[in-house]
Amino acid sequence: MNASGWDERARDLGLLFLRVSGGLFLLWVHGLPKLLHYSTEVQNIEDPFHLGANLTLILAIFAEVLCPLLIVAGVLVRLACLPILFLLLVALVVVHPQWSLFEGQFGWLLLIVFTSILIAGPGRLALNDRFAGVLRYA
């Protein structure tokens, strides 16, 4: 195998690792607790846009459960990054503007991970690559 073939495989493996680890981490740490403890979470969730606690929590669950699952699978990856990035920016800039970089480091790191995925795309080891046409560039 020549060097460029190795580089392409390494890039695709790196993107796969980034997608799977970032997606599962967000799902495990934030998404599943919200989904599994809905009644507790709905009482504690911040509602910065006054949409109501239920709708705000449903939107957070969408961004932290469904979107990471799509990213892990490699389906509509770039599109699935957008709700996550919006949620992270709202949390860091609107809901918790008083947080120092130290206090918000987890959120900022997730922002870096999902922005990187948005920019780089899913790589060739994604279900997107198995479909032609419309999913290919999502």
Score class of each variant (00 low, 15 high):
T40P: 06
L66P: 07
L51T: 06
G74R: 06
R11K: 06
R136K: 14
L109A: 08
V113Y: 13
R130E: 00
L125R: 05
D129N: 11
D12M: 00
F86E: 00
L101T: 14
L111E: 00
V93I: 15
I71S: 01
V42H: 09
L88S: 05
L24Y: 02
F86M: 04
N128R: 10
R124S: 00
Q98L: 12
N54Y: 08
A120L: 11
R19H: 07
L35K: 14
R9D: 09
A132T: 03
F131K: 14
H96T: 14
L18W: 12
Q105A: 07
V90L: 05
L118T: 12
V134C: 00
F114T: 05
A53R: 01
N54R: 02
L118I: 11
A91P: 04
L85A: 05
V29W: 11
L88G: 05
N128C: 07
Q105W: 05
L92T: 03
M1A: 15
L36N: 14
H30L: 02
I84W: 03
V42Q: 10
P48K: 03
T115S: 11
V20Y: 12
H50T: 01
L111C: 04
S4M: 06
L51K: 00
S100C: 12
L59M: 08
A10C: 11
A73Q: 06
A132P: 07
L32Q: 12
L118Y: 13
G104H: 08
V90G: 04
L79M: 07
